[in-house]
């Protein structure tokens, strides 16, 4: 499965499509407040754009894009963003994940909530992307010890 579809046309198509899917992924993440979408869907789209190259181009090309060992830190960062947002509210004296108390000056509570949701969506998006790629990488390349 390391180089499954070694066909130039598939590779070309994938390389053409991948950036647009990625842009769309970011759009879905940031536009989740107004239209369907959000962190999970956006993250999955980001992952899809990365997986496309991986499926079409094999591992060597994928290495240039996002390295295998970078996925774990990205996942950790994604979870940490969400967690830190919650803790920030606690630090400000509220309940966990109470966005109203986020320490961003000059915003009324409702807009703070808006911002809070946005921040966590980004965290989710990062984590989902990293983890889906991680699952794929491990499934393709990983070996069981048995």
């Amino acid at each position: 499965m390391k180089d499954p579809f070694q066909s130039p046309i598939v590779l070309l198509g994938a390389r053409l499509l991948s950036p647009y899917i990625m842009v769309f992924g970011w759009y879905v993440i940031f536009h989740g407040h107004y239209s369907p979408g959000g962190g999970f869907q956006g993250g999955a789209l980001l992952a899809a754009s990365l997986l496309l190259i991986r499926v079409a181009g094999g591992s060597r090309l994928a290495e240039l894009q996002i390295r295998e060992f970078a996925t774990t830190p990205l996942a950790v960062i994604g979870v940490a963003i969400y967690f830190a947002t919650g803790l920030a509210a606690v630090a400000a004296g509220g309940y966990f994940l109470d966005y109203e108390l986020l320490p961003i000056p000059g915003m009324e509570p409702a807009w703070l909530r808006y911002t809070g949701i946005l921040i966590i969506e980004v965290g989710i998006g990062l984590a989902v992307m990293a983890i889906l790629v991680m699952i794929y990488d491990n499934m393709v390349r990983g070996e069981d010890y048995g």
Binding site: F69, V76, A80, F83, F96
Partner: peptide
């Protein structure tokens, strides 16, 4: 009540962060 559960979240993040 939240602290007990969140400690685990914290450490589930910390362990990979340091474990790498």
């Amino acid at each position: 009540p939240a602290t007990i559960a969140l400690i685990f979240v914290l450490f589930s993040v910390l362990i990979p962060a340091f474990g790498i």
